[in-house]
Simulated assay, not measured.
Amino acid sequence: MDKALAILDKLISFPTVSRDGNLELIRYAASLLEGAGIEARLFPGEGGDRASLFATVGPKGTGGVVLSGHTDVVPVEGQAWSSDPFRMAERDSRFFGRGAADMKGFIACAIESFLAAARADLARPLHLALSYDEEIGCVGVRPMLLELAGAGIRPEWVLIGEPTGMQVATGHKGKTGIRAACCGQAAHSALAPTGLNAIHLASDLLTEIRAIQADIERIGARDADYDVPFTTLHAGVIKGGTALNIVPDACEMLFEIRNIAEDDPKEILDRLFESTGAIVSKARKQFPAADIRLDIFNEYPGLNADPGGAVTQKAIGLSGQSSRIKVAFGTEGGLFESSLGTTAVVCGPGSMEQGHKPDEFVSRDQLQQCRAMLARLTGAMAA
C-alpha cells in the first residue's frame, strides 16, 4: 500500500481547486506513466492552466475498461481544518486532506493499478481518464470525450471512482442549471408603482418554480432508490438591486433541476417558459420593456445503468460488495455513456459525507478495498 499512499500524498499536495487549474497534478501523473513507458495524451483546457489526461495499456482496439476520475477539488476557504488541507495527514487509520475522498483516493489507487497493469499481459485495453473542472458542472471531460469519440474509442464499460463506500452505484440524477435574467424599470422608491421591480419579477418566477416542485412532490414520478425519490427544483442565488431607495430594473436568479430518469427536464423547462411568458405578458401591459430570459448555463445527463445488467453484475463481483445503490451527487458517467456509447457505473473509496467538508478523509480500509477491486479487475483482463 506504500506506493498508493505516496501517490495520494503527492496528489493532495496539489491545490487543484477548480478555479486555479490542475496542470501540475496532470504533469505529475503523466510523468509517472511515462516513467513506466506509458504514453499519456493531454487535452489542454482554455487558459493553459488545466488539462485532462487519457492513457491506455494493453492491446489497441475497442472494448476494455476506463478508470475515470476528476482531479479538481472544491475550495477550503472559511473551513476549520485541523491540519493543512493540502498536506496529507494520517490519524487513526484515516488519511486527511482536500480531495482525499472526492476523489484523489481513487485516483491514487487507479494510477497504482494502471502502472501494474502495464507489466501484465492484458487481453483487452485498460484506459485511464483524468479530467478537470468536474466540480463546476462536469466541464473539463467534454472536450476529451469529443476527441475520443472521434478516434473511435469504444470501451465496454467505465468505472467512475467517486466515493460510494465501495458500493456499486448504478444511477444518479441529471442536472440542468438555469439563469433567469429579469428586466424591469427603475424608479425612485417613493414612487415605486411607477417602476417595475425586477426583484418582484424574480419572486413571481420563484413562486412558479415552487408550484412545479409541489406538483412533482404530490403526483410526480418516484424512484425509491434515491434519498429524495423525486425530481427537485432549487433556487440557489438571487442578485438584484443597488440601493433601498431605487426600484431595481435588473435581477438575476440561478436555479437548477435535478431530475430522475423518469422525468424529462425539457418538459419542466417548457412549463417554466409558459409561466414566464404569462408573467411578462401581464407586466408589459404597463411596462413594455419587461422581460424574463431563461438560459441554460450548464447541464449534464443522469446515470441510469441497468441494475441487473452484465456490467453492473461484473462491477458488484469485482467490488466485493453484494448490493447496489444510487447516489445523490452527479458524476461524469452519463457523459461517458452518451459520448462513447458505453455503460458507466460508480464505485470508489470513501464517502461523499466527507466530501466538500473540513477534515475530509478516506480510510485505510476503504483504500485497501479499492486496491483489491482494481487488482481483481486487471487480473480478469489478463490474457
Rank of each mutant, 00 (worst) to 15 (best):
L374I: 05
A375C: 14
G177A: 14
D295P: 01
A101H: 05
A235F: 11
T342A: 03
D249G: 08
D215K: 13
R87I: 03
E262L: 08
M144K: 02
F361G: 05
L377I: 04
T176V: 15
A224K: 04
A198M: 03
D215Y: 11
K357H: 11
D204L: 11
C251V: 07
A55C: 10
V237F: 04
S203L: 13
E267K: 12
G302F: 03
R142G: 09
S281C: 14
E147R: 10
V73K: 02
V311Q: 01
L67Q: 00
G78L: 02
K282D: 12
G195V: 08
E162D: 13
P193G: 05
T56E: 09
G330L: 00
A108I: 01
V74M: 04
R41M: 12
G309I: 03
D84I: 11
T194P: 06
M253P: 03
L335A: 00
V280C: 09
G161V: 05
A261D: 09
T343K: 07
N259W: 10
D204V: 04
A55F: 05
V311T: 11
A261I: 08
E252V: 14
V65P: 10
I38Q: 04
L340G: 09
R142S: 10
P248K: 06
D102N: 14
C370A: 12
L148P: 06
L128S: 05
G220N: 10
I296Y: 13
E46Q: 14
R27H: 12
G69A: 14
L269I: 09
G99L: 00
L67I: 01
H356E: 03
I160G: 02
A118L: 11
V73M: 05
F14Y: 07
L269V: 10
H356W: 12
E134K: 11
L191H: 15
I136V: 14
R124E: 14
H70M: 04
K239T: 12
M352R: 07
K175L: 11
S323N: 13
I212W: 08
R371D: 00
I219N: 11
R258H: 14
A120I: 12
G105C: 08
G47Y: 06
L233I: 07
I212P: 05
W157D: 09
A123F: 15
K3H: 13
P75E: 06
A383P: 10
I238V: 14
I238H: 01
T242K: 13
P265W: 00
M88N: 02
L377N: 06
